[in-house]
């Protein structure tokens, strides 16, 4: 399916509420959501994307260790042959207050396509994904 996405919370992070909301929002928007839930490793994201033929990974990190947990994911996707995989990440990516532009640049440099600040609206992610996948706008 052209609109399959893998959704999950990366690393040792067990914040489950946002994940449920994202699942609901992306499913309602017509995406085929493969939700691997909380406590998901990079390998689990990759395995899931391989089997399901997903086009994007929607990754959350809420507990402040996003940088360590996300580092190397793009490289692993390349190794696994997931060449054009779209990587989106959001949540509370780092601990405490940081200059957002700095955080964003860091994640873009790590190979993420889209990076969202704390409390970002899932609808923004959905609009961006439609653009990136060149899907028709809903009526």
């Amino acid at each position: 399916m052209t609109n399959t996405v893998v959704l999950g919370v990366i690393g040792a992070d067990c914040h489950a509420v946002g994940n449920k909301i994202l699942d609901y929002a992306f499913s309602k928007a017509g995406f085929n959501v493969v939700n691997i839930g909380v406590l998901s490793s990079q390998e689990e994201f990759i395995n899931a994307a391989e089997e399901t033929g997903a086009k994007a990974m929607i990754i959350s990190s809420l507990y402040g260790h996003g940088e360590i947990d996300c580092r190397g994911l793009r490289e692993k996707c390349d190794e696994a042959g997931l060449d054009d995989m779209l990587l989106y990440v959001g949540g509370n990516l780092v601990v405490g207050k940081h200059d957002w532009e700095e955080v964003k640049e860091k994640f873009l440099a790590m190979g993420f396509n889209r990076v969202y600040p704390p409390g970002a609206d899932p609808e923004q992610g959905i609009r961006d994904l439609r653009d990136d996948l060149k899907l028709p706008k809903p009526e």
Partner: peptide, 9 residues
């Protein structure tokens, strides 16, 4: 085997 239904072919 290989791929979920609708997934990798």
């Amino acid at each position: 085997a290989g791929g979920t239904d609708g997934g990798n072919q």
